[in-house]
Structures are given as structure tokens and as C-alpha cells.
């Protein structure tokens, strides 16, 4: 089971983001629009969404994209918890779920937090899904049904096509790129620090 599921997870984690982007643009977006938009014609008669591109669309698809990533990383981490701890717990008469919840998970928690941070950093830097799914309207809103923009979308829209390297737009895009780099770098340093700290505990 495991020897089959693990490579499958890894292969799934290797699906390029353009696939998910297309999925967001052509499948999930229109589906969400049908559910939460279109007024009378929609499934619930709601009119919350005005177009298929929205933060929700991008978010849902990104969530799907990160499932194999997070589970593969967490699996590695949970697997690194020594078998002797599991045996110890089972030998005392704990059930499997008690062992998992009270011994394995607490032991693996720091590593899992690290994995989630890595996933967050990937989500922030994700480009294709937001370019294709979240729209490009720069606005500040708490409504997930509206389309909004992200750092990566701005960079793409400023720098695609013929680029004039002296223009302010280009410079803005470079600045955005720098902030993105610093932001994700910070998250990665933190996540990797936690994961490494965790690994040392059992080496």
C-alpha cells in the first residue's frame, strides 16, 4: 500500500502548475460562478460572483495543488518518528489511534508545521494558478468572490511582452519581485530551520 501510494503522491506533487491553472480557468471558475453567481440562472440563485476569476477560485485550486505536497512532506516527517516509540506505546496497551495522536503526532508536530510553512511559501510564490484563476484587478477587499491580484500576477502583467527596462512599470515589477523573494526566503528559512531542528532530534 505504502510502496504504491508514496510514489503516486510524489508524481502528483510533480504535476506542473499550468495544469492546475487551466483547471482553475476552465473548470473550477465556471463551476463556482454557477454555484455562487449568475443571479436567477445560478444553482442557488445567488449573485455573489460577477466573473469566473476570483480569489476563491485560485484558493480552491491552490488547496488541491498543495494536498500531495503537504502529505508527501508530512509523510516523510511522520515516518522519521522512530518505530521504537510506536512500539513503546502499543506495548503499553495504547490503541493505534491513541499512539498516533498522543505519541507520533506530538513528536512530528514541529516538522509538520515546517511543511505547512513551506506550503505557504509555495502558495505565495505560485504564479500560474493566480494568473489564470484570480483575475488581475488591483483592489483591496475582504470578499473572496471578487477577483483580486497578487504579487506574482502583477509581475507577470508588467513584464510580459516587450519590456522597456527603463520604464517605471518595469522597475516596479522588479521591486515586487524583490519583495516576493524576501518574503518567501524568510518563510523558507524559518520552515527549513524547524524541519532541520526536528530531524536532529532523532538522528
Amino acid at each position: 500500500m505504502r510502496s504504491f501510494a508514496k510514489p503516486l503522491l510524489e508524481i502528483l506533487a510533480g504535476i506542473p502548475t499550468i495544469v492546475y491553472g487551466l483547471f482553475a480557468l476552465l473548470t473550477v471558475g465556471p463551476l463556482l460562478l454557477k454555484l455562487f453567481g449568475q443571479g436567477e440562472d445560478g444553482v442557488f440563485g445567488l449573485n455573489w460572483m460577477s466573473g469566473a476569476t476570483s480569489v476563491l477560485t485560485a484558493g480552491v485550486v491552490m488547496g488541491i495543488m498543495l494536498i500531495p505536497f503537504v502529505s508527501s512532506l508530512s509523510d516523510d516527517i511522520i515516518n522519521a518518528v522512530p518505530q521504537s516509540l510506536r512500539d513503546g506505546s502499543l506495548g503499553l496497551g495504547a490503541t493505534k489511534s491513541e499512539t498516533v495522536r498522543q505519541v507520533v503526532l506530538p513528536a512530528a508536530l514541529p516538522g509538520i508545521v515546517g511543511a505547512i510553512l513551506l506550503a505557504a511559501s509555495r502558495a505565495i510564490g505560485e504564479t500560474m494558478i493566480v494568473v489564470m484563476g484570480a483575475g488581475a484587478i488591483a483592489k483591496f477587499s475582504a470578499n473572496p468572490f471578487e477577483s483580486m491580484t497578487t504579487i506574482t500576477t502583477r509581475v507577470v502583467s508588467q513584464l510580459t511582452g516587450d519590456t522597456d527596462f527603463a520604464s517605471p512599470e518595469t522597475l516596479v515589477a522588479f521591486a515586487l519581485g524583490l519583495s516576493l523573494f524576501v518574503l518567501t526566503l524568510g518563510l523558507n528559512v524559518l520552515a527549513l530551520y524547524i524541519v532541520r531542528k526536528y530531524r536532529e532530534q532523532y538522528d
Binding site: 513584464l159 519581485g177 523573494f181 518567501t184 527549513l192
Partner: peptide
């Protein structure tokens, strides 16, 4: 290790 997790768009820039 960090560079492996930097968003690909940064490499594009």
C-alpha cells in the same frame, strides 16, 4: 535548500 523553494517567477525576473 532555500533556493530550491524560491518561487520560479523570481528566476524568471
Amino acid at each position: 535548500a532555500n533556493l530550491a523553494a524560491v518561487p520560479s517567477i523570481v528566476y524568471g525576473i
